[in-house]
């Protein structure tokens, strides 16, 4: 009898662990665009290796972006991006740790699109800033698509733009996020 009770107890424990729902992605897409009206060419990077984890019970939402995985149209631009601007040897990852503020508005068990406000700390180039990101969560079965668009001021993250190219790179880069999360 004792054994049965114990095993039930353990079962219950495991059960609650599973109940704390988590959604995960390792192939999230992050795009940045730092093209200014005076840029001679488009300054755009695409990253398809962003890792992300969402806890639907607490609303906590984290992202890890490997900086070296940003692909740019011009290889030399990609080299400059890594070596001169992001210093990706020194700061290999950009991170976001946030929380969905209006978690009650999202029904993770019902298919549909929900507008969310995510507030948290964004770390780029070793600098952390608190930001609020308006986004959209689309629930479809056991999958969630998270999309967001927001600007990032390069100066806030101490990304140095030399004087000669100052007007050829936008002061604010537009960040676009598109992540498909699966139930973990």
């Amino acid at each position: 009898m004792k054994k049965i009770v114990l095993s039930l107890f353990i079962l219950a424990a495991l059960n609650t662990q599973v109940n704390a729902q988590k959604y995960m992605s390792r192939t999230g897409k992050v795009v940045f665009d730092a093209t200014s009206p005076k840029s001679p060419e488009k300054i755009e990077g695409i990253n398809n290796e962003t890792a992300s984890l969402l806890n639907s019970a607490s609303g906590e939402f984290v992202f890890q972006v490997p900086v070296k995985s940003f692909k740019m149209e011009k290889e030399l631009m990609q080299q400059h991006f890594n070596e001169n601007y992001m210093q990706s040897d020194k700061f290999p990852k950009a991170e976001f740790k946030g929380k969905i503020e209006n978690l009650a508005a999202v029904n993770f068990t019902k298919d549909g699109s929900y507008t969310v406000a995510v507030v948290g700390n964004l770390t780029i180039h070793g600098e952390t800033q608190k930001i609020a990101i308006p986004g959209m969560l689309t629930v479809k079965g056991s999958e969630i698509t998270a999309k967001a668009k927001f600007p990032v001021k390069l100066a806030d993250y101490k990304i140095d733009i030399p004087g000669v190219v100052a007007d050829k790179i936008a002061k604010e880069a537009n960040i676009m996020i598109d992540v498909l999360l699966n139930k973990k």
Partner: peptide
Amino acid sequence: DSTGDLMEEL
């Protein structure tokens, strides 16, 4: 489930 742990998990 503080976000720190979620980050560690990731």
